[in-house]
Design a binder for these strands. Sequence first.
DNA 1: GGTCATAATTGACTGCGGTCACATTCCTGC
DNA 2: GCAGGAATGTGACCGCAGTCAATTATGACC
Lengths: 220, 220
Amino acid sequence: MSKSADQHSRLDAALPPALGRRERKKRELRRKIYEAAFELFLEKGFEETTVEEIAERADVAKGTVFNYFPRKTSFLAAVADDWTSRLVEELGPVEGWSGTTREKLERAFLFLTDLAVQNPGLSRLAFFESLRHMHSPWNEGRITDEEPVRQFLAISRCVLRQGQLSGEIRPDVEPEHAATLIESAFYRTLVHWLQEGGSVDGLHDEISGKLDIIFEGVAA
Amino acid sequence: MSKSADQHSRLDAALPPALGRRERKKRELRRKIYEAAFELFLEKGFEETTVEEIAERADVAKGTVFNYFPRKTSFLAAVADDWTSRLVEELGPVEGWSGTTREKLERAFLFLTDLAVQNPGLSRLAFFESLRHMHSPWNEGRITDEEPVRQFLAISRCVLRQGQLSGEIRPDVEPEHAATLIESAFYRTLVHWLQEGGSVDGLHDEISGKLDIIFEGVAA
DNA sequence: GGTCATAATTGACTGCGGTCACATTCCTGC
DNA sequence: GCAGGAATGTGACCGCAGTCAATTATGACC
């Protein structure tokens, strides 16, 4: 998809790619549509918002919306994507994090749950949908820029690998298994909390309890 | 089909409810629609099958289909439900299972993965949908009989409680956390396998590896 | 500046999921 | 066996997600 459009005159070729007008406009428009969509979702709910309305508010035709978000649910997948991106932006690249393995994982979890807690309604939608679409082939479409990647899984994986190198994690543990285990536990807990409600402390406790199990095991 | 005349008089009314003709027909029709639907899903896929076609094959009107399955996706939720029911039917009530906690869990997992392996395409659909609808309020509709319950979660919970009583599981472990942890790990693994494909052995290994982690922990 | 290929936009159109007001069937009590 | 009420069946109808052929903007190249 990314046809690396940095065909600018070779005079300043060495400098940052400095996206051409076309690419820039594409991104701006994408953002405009995205924002229009979520304004509406928050105002009247996801199901109740029609793509027509999104198009109208973003001042484009309906077809254009589908150029950028090939399914209505693509908007929701984009949220989860946003969050994991924000996590990396605000906390920096995982490789640089300090502390024990456990601390690093907890840091990531806390960051994400805070985002969820700040906007439970939207999070519920987004996480529910993302859970469903995550591995599904539905998201391929016309334009779609960067593939929504499961950055959080990547984070767990990376943290665990580091932990294994530093000797905190047993060497015979398959880091991939542990990473997906943690990830699925986190999603499940968060989704359940978003669905059923409950105190924020309860959410933190549950996540913490599950990390305990993953670190220490349940066997007597 | 077999309307064996048991429209008994009220003389033996105290005995088992012995559903009247109406109730019996309701169940028969529900089954007929269900079967028509899955014949079609298997022939041409879920998305490609229209409710109109299901109605046609079951020889009822479209509206009737929606009486029994208020959403098209209700069919899929029904599958997952079937499976957990079959598990209980074929392996008996969990309370009676013998073996270690670990063995019991593995037995349940194997049973379910076998069902999934037998029909990966349908399983993928069904599990995705069940994942989505599980806690959702969408399934209430006109007629809908028994609520789809997360029997598998119930099984994990029960097995773990037993294990705690028998001393196999540490007493300070919150069984609810462990149960949902196991359940989410299982679903995630199965869904991922259904999506990405791979060998059946690989699937078993991954589940087994995750159980190892849950039992023994990852900490050095 | 002009030409041309390609990327992006548009909105009329389609097909299908889901609803609903009405028809039909079944059960109950007399 | 017959009224009448409740449960169930029916299909015309509707709204919306998603498509696509036609149209317009963009930038590469001369």
